[in-house]
Deep mutational scan, measured.
Amino acid sequence: MLEGKVKWFNSEKGFGFIEVEGQDDVFVHFSAIQGEGFKTLEEGQAVSFEIVEGNRGPQAANVTKEA
């Protein structure tokens, strides 16, 4: 699992990017966010995740919000 911070997330469109120190930003789709209820992320929020190869390159999977 990697750790990063949410760079930005558009809850209307359901996607955004996660910043990872020393690496390129990683695309995140709302469907990759773990948990119940409305799936969104806040700018600057700490998250842990895995990287998988998507249709358009690397993207986040199994995203969990850090306490």
Rank of each mutant, 00 (worst) to 15 (best):
M1Q: 13
M1T: 12
M1H: 09
M1Y: 10
L2P: 04
L2D: 04
E3I: 11
E3Y: 11
G4A: 03
K5Y: 07
V6T: 06
V6G: 01
V6L: 04
V6F: 02
K7F: 03
K7H: 08
W8T: 03
W8I: 04
W8M: 06
W8R: 04
N10G: 04
N10I: 13
S11R: 12
E12C: 05
E12G: 13
E12H: 09
K13L: 15
K13N: 06
K13T: 07
G14C: 03
G14R: 04
G14M: 03
G14A: 03
G14W: 02
F15L: 05
G16T: 00
F17Q: 04
F17G: 02
F17H: 04
F17C: 04
I18F: 03
I18Q: 00
E19F: 15
V20G: 04
G22R: 09
G22A: 08
G22T: 08
D24P: 09
D25S: 10
D25V: 06
V26R: 03
V26H: 03
V26P: 01
F27W: 09
F27I: 03
V28I: 14
V28T: 04
H29Q: 03
H29S: 04
H29F: 13
F30I: 11
F30A: 05
F30T: 04
F30Q: 08
F30N: 05
A32V: 10
I33G: 02
I33D: 01
I33L: 10
I33P: 01
Q34C: 06
Q34V: 11
Q34T: 15
Q34M: 07
Q34G: 12
Q34L: 08
G35P: 04
G35F: 08
E36A: 09
E36N: 08
E36L: 14
E36C: 05
G37V: 06
G37Q: 09
F38Y: 10
F38V: 07
K39Y: 05
L41F: 04
L41C: 04
E42W: 10
E42H: 11
E42K: 11
E42F: 08
E43W: 15
E43A: 14
Q45E: 06
Q45D: 12
Q45Y: 06
A46L: 15
A46N: 12
A46S: 11
V47K: 00
V47D: 00
S48R: 09
F49D: 00
F49A: 02
I51N: 03
I51V: 13
V52D: 11
E53G: 12
E53K: 15
E53V: 13
E53F: 14
E53W: 11
G54H: 05
N55A: 10
N55I: 10
R56N: 08
R56L: 12
P58G: 06
P58T: 13
Q59L: 08
A60S: 05
A60R: 00
A60F: 01
A60E: 00
A60H: 01
A60N: 00
A61V: 06
A61P: 01
A61K: 15
N62W: 03
N62V: 11
N62S: 08
N62D: 04
V63D: 01
V63G: 01
T64F: 14
K65L: 11
E66G: 15
